[in-house]
Design a binder for these strands. Sequence first.
DNA 1: TGCGCTGCCTAATAGGTTTAGGCAAATTCT
DNA 2: AGAATTTGCCTAAACCTATTAGGCAGCGCA
Lengths: 192, 192
Amino acid sequence: MVRAGLTAERLTRAGAELADEVGFEQVTVSALARRFDVKVASLYSHLKNSHDLKTRIALLALEEMADRGAAALAGRAGRDALSAFADVYRDYAREHPGRYAAAQLKLDPGAAAASAGRRHSRMTRAILRGYDLDEPDQTHAVRLLGSVFHGFVSLEAQGGFSHSAPDSQESWDRSLDALDALLRNWPAPRPS
Amino acid sequence: MVRAGLTAERLTRAGAELADEVGFEQVTVSALARRFDVKVASLYSHLKNSHDLKTRIALLALEEMADRGAAALAGRAGRDALSAFADVYRDYAREHPGRYAAAQLKLDPGAAAASAGRRHSRMTRAILRGYDLDEPDQTHAVRLLGSVFHGFVSLEAQGGFSHSAPDSQESWDRSLDALDALLRNWPAPRPS
DNA sequence: TGCGCTGCCTAATAGGTTTAGGCAAATTCT
DNA sequence: AGAATTTGCCTAAACCTATTAGGCAGCGCA
């Protein structure tokens, strides 16, 4: 009986591929076992449970996006950096829809702390170095940017923008123009 | 044997409550049957299948949000309308996390057409009447607003903004300030 | 060469999904 | 009212996923 050579890492990678193929929802310990031509129970020596698998895929996706983000930011600033960084999320979601969905998993505090979440917010903050914002406006802007990136990408993936003109690519470009203009001219809190 | 009086509508409403209580992921035909103290198979005269149930909950959530949105917009314009409308999504997601999650379900074309999706985009467009935007910028702005609303609310729900100052409420207010400023001063496409 | 650890297996339990077919309650007709 | 019919919930069964317990064989090392 030849051993399959299972490890948590290989399972996670295969799980990520599976997610991209059939959707993150359909990622199942059983399907993964089938893919390795192995009995389901065998996976439980490497994974705590199904949720553990999903969490690992989420962490992988967050790392991969962070890596791409870092590469995109290298040597860029201002609107250039903004655009390149934003495209990282959009492109990643298009190439790896299952992984992107995984990254939206609500992580428990332990996993969240071990995740690339901090890298993401640090990189977003780095983009703002090209603009003139002090705390706490910088944090507000980080959150706004994150919201736009995630919101646009996920509405687009949901099909929210399809079947209606103009092309969503155009809206993406113009939204980034708009964010760039906004960051260059960040408004003071309005008097309440 | 007393009849339970099941209907698709009652099941949908109960499913929505269940979603808010235990999370949309955990909404299951079995759990719903338990809640009505009825055998699982009985639900299949009212629901095509599990996916049908989820779709109905999603449609309900979209309708409810659209209703609230319409109420919020009545008699308001400009920044007031923007703020009230945005709060509809955020408040709804906080009051009804399971329903809000349901509303993110990717609908098949049939369901999407029958959904309140169009109402949502028409209302968002109505907000822009308080600003001076022509097509196609209006469409771009509609999409950007939708992205911010959904993105912020869902990152917040995921816990993305917790455990770090400042309060996410503040970022929400300032983001709306920013959007208001942006819409008042929507930039032309930058020369490429 | 044999010892032990590790990795994958069999077996079993529990719960969710879905279909087929039955009986009784509710509704309609005479 | 009583009979006929429709409808609603049930039993039964097949199948899938998740998870745990315990077994045996291969591989690494002495």
